[in-house]
């Protein structure tokens, strides 16, 4: 059981990384990754929603009639999304403000729906959680990596602490949309390249 757990956890990190391999959940990756702080917040929110809804969906998978499974998944996912939204508004207002509409949009983050449909609704709870955690952490790693590059070159700071000398003028392109698109393209190309190298 434990080995299986690790197998599915690692699957989400690299082999089937939701962002770079499956090309899902991109919107929030690009929109939020201007600051590392926002990336970590978004990653935590996604991990929470993904894990909780995968667990619940896996637990109720035998009671859910097949015809209405999609609406039921939607209700479960949106419940956890609303919880995250309200809790963030109450306890982390600046972070919630910075991410704005992208917190409610977690509900349509394709990663969560895709994992619910393809994995959680077919597997026992423990494995569903393993898969959800793997996917969530894989998502967080990618978004944070992009966030580090964008904040470092865009503002010359990491987590709002200056890294470069004061004279450094931020690279605007990194903060604006084009830089985000370019960076994600480079990341996918790098991942393709590294996977090719590891597995000849």
């Amino acid at each position: 059981m434990m080995r299986e757990f690790w197998h599915y956890f690692r699957n989400g990190l690299l082999g089937e990384n939701p962002v770079l391999k499956l090309m899902i959940g991109l919107c929030s990756v690009l929109a939020v990754s201007v600051r590392v702080e926002n990336c970590l917040g978004m990653g935590a929110a996604v991990i929470f929603v993904l894990t909780c809804s995968s667990l619940v969906i896996s637990l109720i998978r035998n009671f859910v009639p097949n015809e209405v499974r999609i609406p039921i998944f939607i209700v479960v996912i949106s419940t956890f999304t609303t919880i995250v939204d309200l809790v963030m508004k109450a306890y982390l207002p600046p972070l919630s403000k910075a991410m704005g509409i992208f917190i409610p949009l977690i509900v349509v983050n394709c990663i969560i729906m895709a994992r619910a449909e393809a994995f959680a609704s077919r597997k026992p709870p423990l494995l569903a959680v393993a898969d959800a955690l793997g996917m969530g952490v894989g998502y967080t790693l990618v978004i944070t990596a992009i966030g580090v590059v964008r904040e470092l070159f865009g503002y010359g700071e990491i987590l709002s602490h200056p890294v470069f000398p004061r004279a450094y003028q931020g690279m605007m392109a990194m903060i604006l949309p084009p830089g985000a698109f370019l960076l994600i393209g480079i990341s996918i190309a790098l991942l393709n390249w590294s996977l090719k190298k590891v597995k000849p």
Binding site: I72, T79, I83
Partner: peptide, 20 residues
């Protein structure tokens, strides 16, 4: 099935709403 899920979800949300 739909009713049960919706009622449970609405209850959970109301609780969180009141708390926050």
């Amino acid at each position: 099935a739909l009713t049960v899920v919706c009622v449970v979800a609405a209850c959970a949300l109301s609780v969180v709403h009141v708390v926050t």
